[in-house]
Design a protein around this nucleic acid. Structure first.
Length: 841
DNA sequence: TGATCCCGCCAACGT
DNA sequence: ACGTTGGCGGGATCA
């Protein structure tokens, strides 16, 4: 898989050559910066100013204000800072915009300033990339960076080429819930711990030992499969969809967010994040260059997330020294809940009025979000299906394409909206099950392994609030079922003593709490007072930094000596050293290559590292409930649906499938909800866990409406579903005018069924996107009978259960429970144990 | 210096 | 064949 990425490029040589070749540019060195803007930039003279101004522009402000009211006001402040700096600064950069000015963070702020956090349904916010790029005066490439991250949060969705729809934060809470869930399922918590542990042990060197350990620790099997899965997936994907899209920034962004959501302190260091991400997707090769690249990407993502104020940069001081890290400052993720209300609340204020409606839109839009595909698809049959679906989807998407550019900068493009005709807004999801077994097994194994790590103590406590087990517990909870068994055995292995680690002495194993302690017993968390926004941070930082820093220091003081000592003392600082080495190596291109190869070999041997498939997770949508379940997991199919509430409908109907079919492909359930959210196929695949509890798949609802027949017909016609299959219809399908109420937001309940393995889910959107949203909302029927999810469980599910011993059910349920409580106190408790210092920049 | 991360080549994808 | 996306990593800046 490694190959997947630009294979060609890999050749270092090629790179260098290329660069050199470049015409104008100077040789290797980066193109002359100086020249750039000035000359090139039409706006140049004032470009900077313009930028700033734009940020400050009234229009923008007004928009911003909205947000600000709710949450932030920082942007402005930041902008001001920027200005000030400029002013104060000599000529400033205006002549040349300083790097900061060009920072992704700042750019992102500008970008965000253009759109309301909670767009109303009415105003459709279309985003035309070209336009935006032009207005912001940046290359399109940069816009992609922003959009990709936003997409990972479902704040935007791609409509067509060059066109995206802005959803703002409507879906954010759900997305976060889903991400959290997936993160839990993936056991990120444990992974984090492991990594930390390792670090202590031997830092960076990537010698075989470590790898081995990791592999083992992680559970070899799992990884292997994962990796396997991906590859194939990739392959097809490539054909069908773009492999890479799903792959990286988007996925990375989601994973990164997951790390925050599952971490107790909610502080994640780049290093750890990079390692986990690397490990996941691919094996981990410690290859330094790879690591470095990952870090670069993480900075990109972090800048955007910071602009969104979801995270903020801090420094964690450990024994080893300070490490750059980010602290989650976004809304707390609630458990899974279905409550719609929560959603809104969480972030900031609920938007005024109309908002409810929008949600729907978004939902629908979201549905498709991904192009991603499913990660895993393996079966040919599945693949085909997927492709077909994708194609359809594309067509659909593409159709609307006509990008209308709205010139106006801020404007909202309302005018632009094309009216559409309503269509049948039906969205169908398919969930296919691949073979989940593997995943499950893997997971199990994994879990076992992990469990080991966990301290025994911890284990027992199931879901107890994290509080009890501070740090990393969350994860623990989940696996209750799973954990117990294995951990004992493994643990020894994992445990601590590492040779390298010796110096470090103490550490515990990762298991939760201890873990914390472990490393650095001395961490202290400092709440950071100020929040900087990322992008700008630099700016602010100047001012603020000192302060903060000092504070940090002071606090640390106590610790400091220690840590400093420790760091220094340790002669053998592996981490650093190793890292350096790595760098050097990297420099030597050849070497790298060799290494990579080497690694790859190793990897191949042990594919295991990867836990999950990396899939882009889904959109959840507003719709609600879906959250948890669906998205997540690959394996699991979690279906969790959510239920929720209000409108949930029994939508989930099951498609009757013959057993054989199921086996072959799991298509457990077919759900159609207008609102549904869909999971991207990808998403599904991703989740490893098996939770089934949620699954509901199937079945159920049997009642079919007339509409159902239509639907079925349609689907079949389209080819989405096999002829024989029928999908129950929801009332929803029928267009019923409904008044939307805010709460309605969560309309449909969706049930999401995920099937294990990933399956691909396919969703169709029948209506046209552009127009839909509005209509959509109108259409949606309120009443849908709610069906308890639990009730519905398809046969398929059952099978799954079997497969997975670990018990999906438990997991999900647990997680849910845990979630609720978690966050609150954890931090507090936690603090003492670990000493972390967090300082802002 | 190390941390941060801009810049833009160029591959993969789409049309 | 060309346009859009976006992986990737050199090496400039910042701190």
């Amino acid at each position: 898989r490694s190959v997947l990425k630009t294979p060609l490029k890999q050749a270092a040589t090629s790179h260098s050559v290329l660069t050199e070749i470049q015409p104008d540019c100077q040789p290797l060195t980066t193109p002359p910066k100086p020249k750039e803007i000035l000359p090139a930039d039409p706006w140049t003279p004032t470009s900077n100013l313009k930028m700033l101004i734009s940020a400050a522009s009234p229009e923008i402000r007004s928009r911003e204000q909205r947000r600000e009211l709710s949450n932030n006001s920082r942007e402005v402040l930041q902008a001001k800072h920027c200005l000030q700096e400029h002013l104060s600064g000599d000529e400033y950069e205006k002549s040349q915009p300083s790097r900061k000015e060009k920072s992704l963070g700042l750019l992102c702020h500008k970008f965000l300033a253009r759109y309301p956090d909670y767009p109303s349904a009415a105003e459709n916010n279309y985003i035309c990339l070209d336009e935006v790029a032009e207005e912001l005066n940046v290359e399109r490439r940069r816009i992609y960076d922003i959009v990709n991250v936003l997409e990972s949060l479902h704040m935007v969705s791609r409509l067509a080429k060059n066109r995206y729809a802005w959803h703002g934060r409507h879906n954010l809470s759900k997305t976060l819930q889903a991400l959290k869930k997936v993160g839990e399922e993936n056991k990120y918590t444990q992974q984090i711990q492991m990594i930390k542990k390792r670090e202590y042990e031997h830092e960076f060197d990537f010698d075989g030992e470590r790898n081995e350990e990791m592999a083992r620790s992680f559970g070899s099997n799992e990884h292997s499969e994962m990796s396997f899965v991906e590859l194939p997936g990739m392959e097809f994907r490539a054909a069908s969809v773009n492999s890479r899209k799903d792959k990286s920034l988007r996925v990375m962004s989601q994973k990164f967010v997951m790390l925050f959501l599952v971490s107790t302190p909610q502080i994640v260091s780049l290093e750890v994040a990079a390692k986990i991400l690397i490990g996941e997707d691919q094996l981990e090769d410690l290859d330094k260059s790879k690591f470095k690249t990952k870090i670069r990407r993480l900075y990109d993502i972090a800048n955007v997330l910071s602009s969104l104020e979801l995270i903020k940069k801090v420094h964690v001081t450990e024994e080893r020294g300070r490490k750059p890290a980010f602290k989650w400052t976004g809304p707390d993720v609630l458990p899974n809940v279905q409550d719609t209300k929560l959603e809104t609340t969480s972030t900031s204020c609920p938007p005024p009025i109309s908002e409810s409606i929008p949600s729907k839109e978004q939902c629908s839009k979201n549905l498709f979000p991904s192009r991603g595909k499913q990660n895993f698809t393996r079966h040919p049959s599945l693949i085909k299906l997927v492709k077909t679906i994708e194609n359809d989807r594309r067509k659909i998407q593409s159709a609307p394409t006509s990008p209308v550019k709205m010139s106006a900068s801020t404007d909202q493009n309302l005018s632009a909206l094309p009216s559409k005709m309503a269509q049948v807004p039906a969205i169908a999801k398919h969930q296919l099950e691949g073979q989940s077994k593997k995943a499950k097994e893997l997971k199990l194994s994994r879990s076992a392994l992990e469990s080991n790590q966990l301290s025994p103590e911890v284990v027992p406590k199931p879901e107890t609030p994290r509080v009890a087990a501070p740090s990393q517990q969350p994860a623990l909870a989940q696996p209750p079922a799973v954990c117990p068994p294995s951990h004992s055995s493994v643990s020894p292995v994992i445990l601590p003593h590492t040779p390298a680690g010796v110096s470090y002495a103490i550490y515990l194993h990762p298991s939760q709490a201890h873990t914390v302690t472990t490393y650095s017993p001395s961490f202290m968390l400092q709440p950071v007072p100020c929040a900087n926004v990322t992008g700008i941070k630099s700016i602010n930082s100047k001012v603020l930094n000192k302060t903060t820093t000092e504070e940090g220091d002071n606090q640390l003081t106590t610790d400091d000596p220690t840590k400093s000592l420790t760091a220094k003392e340790r002669p053998p600082i592996k981490s650093e050293t190793s890292s350096q080495r790595c760098l050097k190596r990297s420099q030597a291109l050849q070497e790298n290559n060799l290494i990579k190869k080497y690694r790859s070999d190793e990897e191949s041997l042990d594919p295991s590292l990867t836990f999950f498939p990396s899939g882009y997770l889904i959109p959840l949508t507003q719709c609600t409930h879906g959250n948890k379940a669906g998205f997540s997991n690959k394996e699991k199919a979690g279906i969790c649906s959510l239920q929720h509430t209000t409108y949930s409908s029994p939508i989930a109907s099951v498609i009757p499938v013959t057993a054989s079919e199921l086996k072959a492909v799991n298509i457990p359930a077919f759900q159609i909800t207008p609102l549904n959210i869909m999971l991207s196929p990808t998403s599904i695949a991703a989740a490893p866990v098996l939770s089934n509890s949620c699954l509901n798949s199937s079945n159920t609802s049997s009642a079919q409406n007339p509409s159902s027949s239509v639907l079925n017909f349609t689907l079949q016609h389209i080819g989405l579903i096999p002829a024989g299959v029928q999908v129950p219809a929801n009332p929803v399908l029928q267009h019923m005018p409904v008044s939307l109420q805010p709460e309605n937001v969560s309309y449909s309940s969706e049930n999401i069924n995920l099937q294990e393995e990933k399956v691909s889910k396919n969703i169709l959107q029948l209506f046209d996107r552009d127009g839909l949203s509005e209509k959509y909302s109108a259409v949606i029927p309120l009443q849908q009978p709610s069906v308890p999810k639990e009730l519905q469980e398809p046969q398929t599910v059952t099978e799954n259960f079997f497969r997975t011993p670990g018990g999906p059910n438990t997991v999900s349920s647990l997680s849910a429970n845990s979630d609720g409580t978690d966050r609150i106190s954890q931090g507090t408790l936690y603090i003492p144990q670990r000493k972390l210092e967090v300082s802002e920049d």
